[in-house]
């Protein structure tokens, strides 16, 4: 077996894939959250739509988006494999265990949180990505150029409470997922040093909460604005 295949089939290699894809998805979240703050502008969606256009037409962004799709898939598939291995590692459980003594709730429920996020991504992609690419999105014209008016689709969705509830719950799940995942990604890559551990840990908390809160603020903001 080549060393690549050997690495990818070892538990260490699998964890490495989880960490690298996970941290890559974290960088994506930063860009995504940053761009989407255009929603907060009171310009009738011009900035947002221009940003959307850029994101769907820039060749470099397009290439990166394929890496993104692959990462999500790999992250999910490897999570499935690792969870199965972990389950098998303890075929008979304890009658009485107190795992909270040495692990956090999030760390023990990454699979569950991940499934929520996967379902969320499907709904999210269906609502916006699918509509944008294959659906019928109204058009808007700025400075004589036509843009797909995704802003309207967003406003339509977020003015309905089921969407707002779904998004808020999903972002809470993401917060937990990130607080554990961000820190652990570094851990898997060898980032464990008594001097920097507290910093990394705080950064992980900050990242998980700020990013998730920012995303959750968008549907809530729109909902309040439209009612």
């Amino acid at each position: 077996m080549s060393w690549v295949a050997q690495t990818l089939n070892s538990t260490l290699g699998r964890k490495l894939v989880m960490a690298l894809t996970g941290l890559f998805l974290c960088t994506f979240l930063i860009v995504h959250a940053g761009g989407n703050t255009m929603l907060f502008r009171s310009d009738g969606g011009q900035a947002f739509n221009e940003y959307t256009y850029f994101m769907t037409h820039n060749p470099l962004i397009k290439m990166v988006s394929y890496i993104l799709y692959t990462s999500i898939l790999l992250h999910a598939v490897y999570a499935g494999i690792l969870t199965a291995i972990n389950r098998k590692a303890r075929p008979v459980g304890y009658a009485y265990a107190r795992p909270s003594e040495n692990s956090t709730w999030a760390s023990r429920n990454m699979g569950f949180l991940g499934v929520i996020l996967l379902l969320f991504i499907i709904v999210h992609m269906r609502t916006f990505w699918y509509e944008m690419h294959f659906g019928s999105v109204p058009m808007a014209t700025y400075d004589g150029q036509e843009y797909k008016d995704l802003y309207k689709v967003v406003i339509w969705a977020f003015s309905q409470w089921p969407y707002v509830v779904l998004y808020t719950i999903s972002m809470a799940a993401m917060a937990f997922h990130l607080v554990h995942g961000f820190r652990s990604g570094f851990q898997t890559l060898g980032g464990n040093h008594p001097k920097y551990n507290p910093l990394l840990s705080n950064l992980s908390w900050a990242f998980g909460i700020i990013i998730s809160a920012l995303f959750a603020a968008m549907p809530i903001y729109v909902f309040i604005q439209t009612h």
Binding site: S10, L12, K15, N102, G190
Partner: peptide, 16 residues
């Protein structure tokens, strides 16, 4: 060690 079944070399997520 890295190849031994089910055991990796880096410090685990859980520090007991």
């Amino acid at each position: 060690n890295g190849g031994s079944d089910g055991c990796g070399g880096f410090w685990s997520l859980l520090q007991y």
